[in-house]
């Protein structure tokens, strides 16, 4: 088995990580007919399945959403497993980190950890693809996601042909690294209209939770 993908999103098949993986594979299969197995870390006994796949593949890509500034707990659990003695490891390991924040800067700190992890495992590091602004892609109109999905298809196609992530597409996906002054100004103008939180407000209203949106249920008054 040449390539395998491990999806570390707690949302499993409903995850944005799966959508991005699907587009990556769509491109990949245009250049390579080898089947690429995908396993999920969420769910019972899933870690064992993913570990088994990890031990059989020549190259593994691990994709996950950014959770509190690094990897989700279940991905960290997996990292602990693959660090144990006696584990057979793929020759090459790469990562895709996606986040809801629009800027890539949020994910570059965990990237340093991922590079060090692979170095510690004495394997070849393929790099980390970083993409922000992914939350909401499931409800966005096709026009808003076309460029993103095209990039991931291209990323997969390039990977099939070269066995690595395209540096050019990685660079494009990292944009914006931080928000431009113009975009920040637009945000500050639009925040008064409620448009900047449209996604959250839509769900709050749909769930009848709008009035409670500023609740502080865990606050204990009078603690000394």
């Amino acid at each position: 088995m040449r390539l395998a993908i491990i999806n570390g999103s707690p949302r499993r098949k409903k995850s944005n990580s799966k959508i991005l993986t699907d587009h990556f594979l769509k491109g990949y299969y245009q250049g390579c007919t080898d089947e690429v197995p995908v396993r999920y870390l969420a769910g019972q006994k899933r870690t064992e399945e993913a570990l088994s796949l990890f031990e059989q593949a020549e190259t593994v890509i691990i994709i996950f959403p950014l959770y509190t500034d690094s990897m989700p707990g279940m991905v960290k659990e997996f990292f602990e497993e693959i660090s144990k003695p006696g584990i057979i490891r793929p020759r090459r390991i790469g990562f895709i980190v996606q986040s809801g924040f629009p800027e890539a800067i949020h994910s570059v700190f965990v990237e340093r950890y991922l590079a060090k992890l692979v170095k510690r495992l004495k394997r070849e590091y393929l790099g980390t693809v970083i993409k922000g602004g992914v939350e909401g892609i499931q409800i966005m109109p096709p026009g808003m996601t076309r460029k993103l999905f095209n990039h991931f298809e291209e990323l997969g196609r390039y990977f099939a042909g070269h066995g690595e992530f395209s540096p050019e597409i990685m660079k494009a996906l990292r944009k914006p690294y931080t928000l431009s002054g113009r975009r920040r100004m637009m945000f500050n103008l639009l925040k008064h209209t409620g448009l900047t939180n449209y996604y959250w407000n839509t769900h709050l209203k749909k769930n009848g939770a709008w009035e409670k949106r500023f609740d502080r249920p865990y606050e204990m008054a009078g603690i000394e």
Binding site: T68, G73, M74, K76, T196, N197, F214
Partner: peptide, 24 residues
């Protein structure tokens, strides 16, 4: 563990999301 805090502590920290507001 594996160069970072334990998965137990990370798992609990992930739950801190409830302490924040979704608004950006």
């Amino acid at each position: 563990m594996a160069g970072f805090i334990s998965s137990r502590l990370k798992r609990m920290t992930d739950r801190f999301v409830a302490l924040l507001h979704p608004y950006i």
